[in-house]
């Protein structure tokens, strides 16, 4: 049995480049199950926060703690980038890649990858080059590749940012299913409707700071800050 890597606690983390603070200082706990949605206007630090939690950003201050030592968490968390990073491989080999890193034999890896592809609706595209997929299919491929190691935590950075309504709905369905099977999801979006549909709780960022958030029903019906209220109403935040 794999030890649970949650809860995840970020303590006073701060990310800076040059002299400029891009994020924080902020503290945050991710525990239990469900979907945490990170909201905020462009440039508010959503991407930076997710990358920092996943260990892709160097922290100027503070620490990120998992329930087990960090190296043991690496294969149990996965990240889906806003612009999907595709390998120069076909669909099934792209999805199988993380399994091959774990020294799974090729046949078994392909079987698992095929299942994962089918689960995201790419069952008919197995031998197509990743680059030949449509925009929505590329993002589904990235999600299948992220899920194939059965991570406990899945980070997604605006996965539907450039997609049409149909692809967005399909991806939301995939995420709801992942959540139901126990994957803890932490996802950013600037789409308020999507946030309402998926969130169990919310983190609202503004200028790199977490200024609002909480359980979804409270936050969406009664945001505490004017910035969050404006953002949820679709107004331009001052």
């Amino acid at each position: 049995m794999v030890a649970p890597i949650l809860p995840l606690r970020a303590e006073n983390i701060r990310v800076a480049r040059g002299g400029k603070t891009l994020l924080g200082p902020l503290s945050l706990e991710i525990a239990g199950d469900g979907v945490t949605i990170v909201l905020g206007p462009n440039g508010s630090g959503k991407t930076t926060l997710l990358r920092a939690l996943h260990g892709l950003e160097r922290l100027r201050d503070g620490e990120v703690h998992w329930a087990v030592p960090e190296p043991e968490t690496r294969k149990l968390q996965a990240f889906v980038f806003q612009a999907p990073i595709l390998m120069r491989r076909n669909v099934v080999d792209s999805i199988a890649y993380p399994l091959l890193l774990d020294r799974m034999n090729r046949g078994e890896a392909r079987d698992r990858a095929t299942d994962a592809a089918e689960a995201v609706g790419l069952g008919g595209r197995l031998s197509l080059a990743a680059a030949d997929l449509s925009g929505g299919e590329k993002q589904k491929l990235a999600i299948a590749r992220a899920l194939v190691r059965r991570p406990q935590v899945l980070f997604l950075d605006e996965p539907c940012a450039n997609l049409d309504g149909k692809s967005t709905r399909e991806i939301e369905a995939i995420l709801i299913e992942a959540r139901a099977s126990g994957t803890r999801i932490v996802m950013s979006t600037h789409n308020v409707g999507q946030a309402r549909r998926l969130a169990d709780d919310a983190v609202f960022l503004f200028e790199g700071k977490r200024i609002d958030g909480g359980p979804a029903d409270e936050f969406f019906s009664n945001p505490k800050t004017p910035e969050a209220r404006a953002h949820l109403q679709g107004d331009l935040v001052p």
Binding site: R74, K75, A78, F81, I85, M87, R88, L101
Partner: peptide, 15 residues
């Protein structure tokens, strides 16, 4: 060039 494309993914996958 390829490394510039793959960098974040390969780091994320803990290679």
């Amino acid at each position: 060039e390829l490394w510039a494309d793959y960098h974040d993914l390969l780091i994320s996958l803990n290679t």
